[in-house]
Nucleic acid binder design. Structure first.
Lengths: 208, 208
DNA sequence: TGCCAATGTTAACACCGTTAACTTTAAGCA
DNA sequence: TGCTTAAAGTTAACGGTGTTAACATTGGCA
């Protein structure tokens, strides 16, 4: 079952890989089913045996992206609550910076409407949950405030997602040093932005 | 200079408005020069007398968006530093929620590459500066920590931008109450996420 | 072995952005 | 006032897209 021109058996996977390559180089807007089919050496309508839509191909790429992001977040060492939180933040931003076009596709909104691809939403939740679990652990350890979990998770996610998007797209003037920036930002969230000039004022603690 | 079919004198503005209407209803992906020309009652190539590109039309829409965002941020009352900061955060998210498709276009990244439209970058800076100035005032008033201004601005912008994007696109599970969410998130950034159980522990202060 | 479902094929439709070549009109100057 | 010129419109055409219909081939199973 191999290469008789018909039924070469690997079309789905090959189209996926080809589309991923184009995505990485030129962004999702440059993904064309006809071009992909030609490069694989197959007619364009053949792709419709494996993907109902161009959009479903993109959704599959995004699903893979969320799975990769989840793995990257899971691989962060959770030694102390603080190290786990900062590590997750850095890992998140690092992922976005290493795969900017894929990240943009995952959170495009315009390209992949939210309710349309259940497996996509599920994959997004999978990554989301890693972040949420880490925060919950930080709360149980007494390191984080006992604020509502949904609130704290939304805050953390908004921060890392916003930073990812802004750095990827080249906003953020004076974005000199990026790694320090990400670490400084997460620290700022943890310790707060308000100056407590009352008495104690022991800024920059490093270990809980 | 009016309506002889030729030279109806208002093509530029009319195309802008028509494109904006389509953008609001269906997103930037649905903006088609041919369709716009037809609805205005003009041939498609006529648009190229007023826009060098489809992309330049989109850039013009985004520029208008940044100007509107800037105005909305400027209209926030700056009574106390805290009120100014929270007010700006709420206004920012409110703008994104009131114009989701426009906001997505402004920060698309994939649609409008960063260095290609100088006036666009300038308009973005205009909105950015309002946020930065507010933070600088908060620092001068002694309300905010004297951390590097670029760091604090990047943090604040990341937070409000991330929250905007996530709520617009329907991520954030359990996103029950949005206004409280935005306010809670900005407060959390101001006061920090760490529980200070050592001694002082005066959480939830409301005035500096 | 013969049939059927899976998986390919070509042809075609209706769009799209964009350019070339041409035409009409408004405006300014002799 | 009339002529010229540049601005602003026109049609025709090129190459590209996603997608569907109708048809062809093939591998696997009864």
């Amino acid at each position: 079952m191999a290469r008789t021109a018909y039924h070469h058996g690997d079309l789905h996977q090959q189209a996926h890989q080809q589309a991923l390559a184009v995505l990485r180089l030129e962004g999702d807007g440059a993904i064309s089913l006809r071009a992909i089919a030609k490069q694989i050496g197959v007619s364009a309508p053949a792709l419709y045996r494996h993907y109902t839509d161009r959009e479903s191909l993109l959704a599959e790429l995004a699903i893979g992206g969320f799975a990769a992001l989840r793995q990257q977040l899971l691989s962060v060492e959770q030694h102390t609550p603080r190290a786990a939180l900062i590590g997750i933040g850095l890992a998140y931003v690092a992922f976005a910076q290493s795969e900017p076009n894929l990240y943009r596709l995952m959170f495009g909104g315009r390209v992949l409407p939210k309710g349309a691809h259940p497996r996509l939403d599920q994959a997004g939740l999978g990554a989301f949950n890693v972040l949420q679990d880490t925060i919950a652990r930080g709360q149980r350890a007494g390191y984080l405030k006992p604020a509502p979990l949904a609130l704290m998770t939304a805050t953390a996610w908004s921060l890392v997602h916003g930073l990812s998007q802004l750095t990827i797209d080249g906003h953020l003037p004076n974005a000199d040093a990026e790694p320090q920036l990400a670490e400084g930002i997460t620290s700022l969230l943890l310790e707060g932005a308000i100056a407590h000039t009352d008495a104690h004022t022991d800024n920059n603690e490093d270990t809980p």
